[in-house]
Amino acid sequence: MPDLEERLDAIYENILDYEAKQVAELVKSEVEAGTDLQIILDDALIAAMDEVGDLFSEGVLFVPEMLMAANAMKAGMEILRPLLTDSDIPSAGKVVIGTVHRDIHDIGKNLVGMMLEGGGFEVIDLGVNVAPDEFVEAAAKHSPDIIGMSALLTTTMPNMPKTIDALHKANFEGKIIIGGAPVTLEFAETIGSDAYAPDASAAVVLARGMLTNG
C-alpha cells in the first residue's frame, strides 16, 4: 500500500484532474483506513483547492476547469461532511447572492455562486427577481458575511440602491458586492455598495480580500 503522502497526493491529483468519482472513492478508502479526517481535509482537499485558486488567479486554469475541480473537491467533502463537526468544516465565509428585483437573468449570478463555492465559500442562492425585503429577510436568517447582487439590465440596476438602502435600514453589518454587465465602478460607488466585481472571477478575489482585510 502506498504511504500516506502518496495517497493524499492521489486525491490532490484527482481534484486537479476534475475526477469527482475518483476523489470520492479515494477519500472513502482513506476514511476506512482510519486516517485523521483533518489531515485528509487539510492536506488533500483544501490544499488542492488552494492550488486551483492560485492557478486560476494566474490565468492557467479557465472558469469551467476551476468549477470542475471544485465539484471534484465537493465529492470528497460529501464523504467527510457527515463525519466532521461543523467547526471542523472550513468556510471562507458565508455569501448570500441573487439577481435584483425584476431581473431574471441568472447566468452571471450562477457563475459567481459556483466560483465562490469553488473558492470555499458557503453560498446561499436566493435565485432571480429578488425583492429588497427578500434580501433583508435572508440577511436576518443567514447572517452572511457578504451579500452579492447582480443585474443584467439597465432597467433593473436602480433596484440595487433600493436593496442596499433596505439592507442598511435593517442594520445589515456585512459587506455588499454588486456586479452585472451594465454595472460600473462609478455606479457602485454612488449607491453605497462596498465593492464592484467586473466579472465572476473578480468576485471571488474581492470576497476573499474583504473577509481577510475587513
Binding site: 503522502e5 497526493d9 490532490y12 486537479l16 492536506d43 490544499a47 492550488e51 492557478l55 492557467v60
Partner: peptide
Amino acid sequence: MVSDMRRSRRERKIGDKA
C-alpha cells in the same frame, strides 16, 4: 505537506495549458 510530486504536477499543469 507539499510533496515534490505536487510541485512537478503544478509545472506540468502550467505546461499542459501552455
